[in-house]
Simulated assay, not measured.
Amino acid sequence: MCILFIALNQHPEYPLIVCANRDEFHHRPTEPAHLWQPDNELLAGKDLEAGGTWLGINKAGAFSALTNLRDPMRQKSNMRSRGELVIKALQQKPLTMSWLREHSDNYNPFNLIFGHGDELYCFNSAVNEFTRLTSGFHSISNGALDDIWPKMARGTLALEKLITESTQPDIDELITIMRDETRADDLELPQTGIGVEWERLLSSIFIRHEEYGTRSTSIILQDKRGKSRFAEVRYDGKGRNLGRQVFTVEPTQP
């Protein structure tokens, strides 16, 4: 996952609204979002290379997503797959803060967002710290929570404008926000150690590149009763639509 925008307690009917893009190499095998066997409790896409996922919800109404922290100097090849953390966060026996602090060194640097209802947390493994998300608009990409990267600021403002002006959030309009290919000016680019050409490519919300780019957009609308609508659109290396799915998940007792 590369970027998420979250509106928490900003709409009278939908206290949790999530818009997210997953950026990845196009050759990496992936299954679209689906209910995972054997118990159908987890709704998420699946990374077929490592077996994890980047974003999902469960039938109790919990949500989790993960972004990689962009720090080339701290990347190691023998680490566990970060995608398993989202699964752990959505299991019936969820992650504890102490477990994350104790085991985060087994993974390359990451942000993990997880929680239930309006009690969402972001764990940043680089600083080994938790932040509870306050009511408002938040953005998470490949740096710290609510960093002011140009694409993070751009998407946050677009989401805020749409939510405050809409009585009923429209999934197509939310997807349009996530299809924004506007790149930042060079003077506004973050310095994350990957070189200016890659910084330019990755500076837009939607990344179009034949080898690496936005593979999917996910939209989650969770209402006051915990009922969730989950939409996923998938793309190829030219940014073309490969398919769309919309799920409705009724809440069960955790």
Results as ranks from 00 to 15, higher is better:
5 F>L: 15
6 I>V: 15
7 A>N: 09
8 L>E: 02
8 L>C: 04
11 H>P: 13
14 Y>R: 07
16 L>A: 03
28 R>P: 02
29 P>D: 03
30 T>L: 04
33 A>N: 08
34 H>K: 01
50 A>V: 04
54 W>L: 07
54 W>V: 06
57 I>L: 13
58 N>R: 02
60 A>D: 12
68 N>E: 06
75 Q>V: 02
76 K>L: 13
77 S>I: 09
80 R>V: 07
83 G>F: 03
87 I>C: 07
90 L>I: 12
94 P>G: 05
95 L>P: 03
96 T>F: 01
100 L>E: 04
101 R>S: 14
103 H>W: 08
107 Y>W: 04
107 Y>E: 06
111 N>K: 01
114 F>Q: 11
115 G>W: 00
120 L>S: 10
122 C>G: 02
129 E>N: 12
130 F>T: 00
133 L>S: 03
135 S>W: 00
137 F>I: 10
138 H>S: 06
139 S>C: 14
142 N>T: 12
143 G>Y: 04
145 L>Y: 00
145 L>E: 02
148 I>R: 13
148 I>E: 15
151 K>V: 12
155 G>C: 04
162 L>Q: 14
165 E>T: 15
166 S>Q: 08
168 Q>P: 00
169 P>W: 01
172 D>A: 13
172 D>P: 00
173 E>I: 03
174 L>S: 08
179 R>G: 00
180 D>L: 06
180 D>F: 01
183 R>N: 13
185 D>A: 14
190 P>V: 13
194 I>Y: 02
196 V>S: 11
203 S>R: 07
211 E>A: 11
212 Y>H: 04
218 S>F: 02
220 I>V: 15
221 L>Y: 05
223 D>C: 11
223 D>M: 09
229 R>N: 10
231 A>K: 07
232 E>N: 03
233 V>C: 12
233 V>E: 13
236 D>E: 06
241 N>H: 15
243 G>I: 11
250 E>P: 00
250 E>W: 12
252 T>D: 12
